[in-house]
């Protein structure tokens, strides 16, 4: 008797919490999109309903009056340079740690990995002054470097585990044919670990595109703002200007690239993040 009640609950009743949570997740996101097409007056009048007409005025406002165009451009630069730099630093190191026998390789690996667990907040104060010394404070390229190094441990971690699956015979035969180790790394290892490289790069890209706090500390002038900072600025302004529509439009601009990446690489992102968490 208990069994059947349990099963009935299980099969049909179980969907109720699932559907409720789906609504809880999707509704605010969808509402944000809808809000970006509403005028400010309409947002006040009817904050959670559908817009009367779809207008793109908010996007135009955000783009021109609030310099979102500059911020998008800055975010793009920081993201792309950060992601490339991360790979340039992580691929050779991951390869050396994974495939070349040398003393201290285990120590080096542990050192990188344990940096994943250390709260970096402490380091941000000295980093602020270090960047100042190097003339990289309030500089998007400086931020890109900081980002790249901050994602090194995670990237090295994922890449070493990917490279360990590549059969050694390929490198061995290439070396027999007289290929230099540099060429082995470039022509054999890198293409063969492409799947891992793509996974970490997507993760890093999303991370850099979304990042807020380091940008808040290390960037100061508004022409260097990344998108996250610009949005935060519009948000704090909106209390006085009431430019809610513009705020929603800029949130949409920030989230659309992430949605596109997620739509294409959903499996990779989910797998990359869970593995990073489990093994990290």
């Amino acid at each position: 008797m208990r069994r059947t009640v349990g099963q009935m609950l299980g099969r049909t009743g179980i969907r109720i919490p699932l559907i409720l949570w789906t609504i809880a997740v999707l509704y605010p996101i969808i509402w944000m999109f809808i809000g970006s097409f509403k005028s400010n007056a309409e947002i006040y009048r009817n904050p959670w309903g559908l817009p009367e007409t779809f207008n793109w005025q908010n996007f135009a406002d955000a783009w021109t009056n609030y310099n979102i165009d500059t911020s998008v451009f800055n975010s793009l630069i920081v993201t792309v340079i950060g992601a490339i730099l991360t790979l340039a630093m992580a691929i050779p190191t991951a390869y050396a740690i994974e495939r070349i026998n040398f003393r201290g390789s285990r120590f080096l690996f542990t050192l990188y990995i344990s940096a994943m667990m250390i709260p970096m907040v402490l380091g941000w104060i000295p980093l602020f002054f270090l960047l100042m010394e190097l003339n990289l404070l309030d500089n998007i390229y400086g931020l890109a470097i900081v980002y790249a190094v901050s994602q090194l441990p995670f990237t090295i971690f994922v890449l070493t585990s990917f490279m360990s699956t590549i059969p050694k015979s390929l490198e061995e035969s290439a070396a027999m044919d007289g290929m230099s180790p540099y060429m082995v790394l470039w022509k054999i290892i890198t293409p063969l670990s492409m799947s891992g490289i793509i996974t970490v790069t997507i993760m890093n890209t999303i991370q850099f595109w979304n990042e807020y706090f380091m940008a808040l500390i290390f960037l100061q002038s508004s022409e260097n703002y990344t998108l996250a900072l610009a949005i935060d600025f519009i948000s704090s302004e909106a209390q006085y200007t009431n430019a809610w529509g513009t705020l929603f439009a800029s949130l949409v601009i920030a989230i659309v690239p992430v949605i596109i990446l997620y739509a294409i690489f959903q499996r990779r992102i989910a797998k990359g993040m869970t593995e990073g968490a489990i093994k990290g």
């Binding site: 979304n210 990042e211 948000s235 920030a254 992430v258």
Partner: peptide, 10 residues
């Protein structure tokens, strides 16, 4: 995978 800024403002 949403930015904390977007989550926070939302």
């Amino acid at each position: 995978i949403m930015s904390v800024v977007v989550i926070g403002i939302l």
